[in-house]
Design a protein around this nucleic acid. Structure first.
Lengths: 124, 124
DNA sequence: ACAACTGTATATAAACAGTATACACTGTTT
DNA sequence: AAACAGTGTATACTGTTTATATACAGTTGT
């Protein structure tokens, strides 16, 4: 499982792991029913503690993205695809909303943001 | 000074205070040389500790937004306006960038984001 | 000098992030 | 059935971050 974590980031390790796995589920790179790497092997890969990977998996389970069976492993859950898209839309709306707030405060125009959007959408 | 803080937010108190004061400086609601409320009076207003308001002011000073003189008070610093705008632009670019990343992962189109941008820009 | 205001320093408590290690469950191999 | 090698779980500990109370020190006007 290719996950890249940064120790110098201000984002907690378990959250970096959580987000990247969530992304793989949302993008369908990880499909429903698929077995995730064990917390141990993932921890060894990333050179972090077993407990940290466990925390990541626990949060994913709390949010309904995975299901874990003691002694067996952790599997991608059958989460409603429409619900997932709705969550992503809301996340984006939140980001755009703060961006707009900042723009208004500092007198930045809508066109400047539009340009950023155009450029960033092509680039990646 | 009207600042609204939420105890239930996941954002630390000192950071909520810091951001809102920074916004007032960026929007020129607080002008260069102006005296901020004392850490004590602000703490009393917001019903938080003196140390917490002090932490907020310290960070603002570290970022060059204010200057504080022991025994006298804390004043809005004469920070380069162009530099401030540059910082705000970068902050917005970061937000749009993550929004675009999420959109690409979950198959959300540029048009959907554009619509959000239009709506949010009119609303507020 | 004193009173009333400023910011500062020290010590403490609680929550959070990350860890190591010992424990318990599941499945396979013998 | 016993042994083993894999899975997740629970406990206990360390260091950092967030927030606090309280005692200290500088500035100003009377």
């Amino acid at each position: 499982m290719d996950i890249i974590i940064s120790n110098s980031s201000n984002i907690p390790l378990y959250e970096q792991v959580k987000e990247q796995i969530k992304n793989k589920i949302v993008s369908n790179e990880l499909k429903t029913g698929e077995l995730l790497p064990s917390i141990r092997s993932l921890a060894k890969d990333l050179r972090i503690s077993v407990i940290t990977t466990k925390n990541a998996y626990e949060e994913l389970e709390r949010e309904g993205y995975v299901e874990t069976i003691p002694g067996k492993g952790t599997y991608v859950a059958n989460k409603n695809k429409e619900l997932i898209k709705e969550e992503q839309l809301q996340k984006i709306e939140g980001l755009i909303d703060t961006a707009v707030s900042i723009a208004k405060i500092s007198g930045i125009s809508k066109e400047e943001i539009r340009e950023m959007l155009d450029i960033l959408f092509e680039e990646e």
